[in-house]
Design a protein around this nucleic acid. Structure first.
Lengths: 151, 151
DNA sequence: TCCTTATCAATGCAATTGCATCTATATGGA
DNA sequence: TCCATATAGATGCAATTGCATTGATAAGGA
């Protein structure tokens, strides 16, 4: 039960991770705003729905994919629908649910966001580390993924 | 002006960074909440003020250190003050500003948060990577810091 | 000195988020 | 079939955040 206090190396790595990730997000969000585009979360959802294809996705399937709370997904989808970027279809075998599908304008919006988002990734990551370094970074980050639930 | 689209390696590293950092923050915030403690941002400010010592800090000095907007700092300090964790002192040579200093309860709160926060860092980072790997990670992340302003 | 501009910090208002709860349908057992 | 429980999704309300602006003092030049 008693947790060891973190090593200096862990603290430094943690601090860098917190700071850098926030800076990168902020920079990217600023770039999107500057181009009159919606936040990154919109891209995440549109991306998942585009990948999912014509079958679409159920809202609950988006929760883990975009790391949003249930009500967050519910309201984000409402905004996307209001903007005509997605459409909700009743699903035959479950009267509680619906299927969400990306529309043509949704795909178009996704492309427009990617033009800026992709450029941001290039500028902030791709141009700063070599392919090999990016691989090492991704590998190390992968080891931190999906922390198992501690009960 | 035309930005190259990102390499697959950059995209993977970016995606991992975005996802992992959010998961780690979420996990840590959850642990704090579960222990009836305030959010990480409170710790950040209390930590900076503790480091600053008796002289305290001006609010504008906190802006870059904790990566918060000016109004974010203003309101967070108001909450901290309301909880008696910091105190605001007029500053003699600048009638516009104030100096913010951590109080005894502020230091105590910082300790209580660290007990949980530190344990979280150990569990989520320290226990998952070796000291050498943590060093490599910190080094790579350091290369992504403080992206120069593109004008 | 006077005036213009810059800086520090706070705040009104709208949008978003978090929390708890609610409605509706589904599922599984008695 | 009926009921208790579980799951899908939405929403009321409070707290927080973002944006734009304001009030107040400072700084610097004419």
């Amino acid at each position: 039960m008693t947790k060891k206090s973190p090593s200096p190396e862990a603290i430094v790595a943690w601090a860098r991770l917190m700071r850098v990730s926030r800076q990168l997000v902020e920079r990217t969000e600023d770039a999107l705003k500057a181009n009159g585009l919606p936040p990154l979360a919109w891209y995440d959802v549109l991306h998942e729905l585009a990948e999912a294809g014509e079958g679409g996705l159920r809202p609950f399937e988006l929760i883990d994919r975009v790391l949003l709370a249930q009500y967050g997904v519910s309201r984000l989808l409402a905004r996307l629908e209001a903007d005509g970027l997605v459409e909700k279809l009743p699903v035959s075998d479950d009267g509680r649910g619906q299927t969400v599908r990306i529309t043509a304008s949704g795909r178009e919006m996704r492309r427009r966001i990617w033009a800026i988002y992709g450029a941001s990734i290039t500028e902030l990551m791709g141009d700063r580390l070599s392919a090999k370094e990016l691989g090492v970074l991704a590998g190390l980050l992968g080891r931190l993924r999906d922390p198992p639930v501690t009960d």
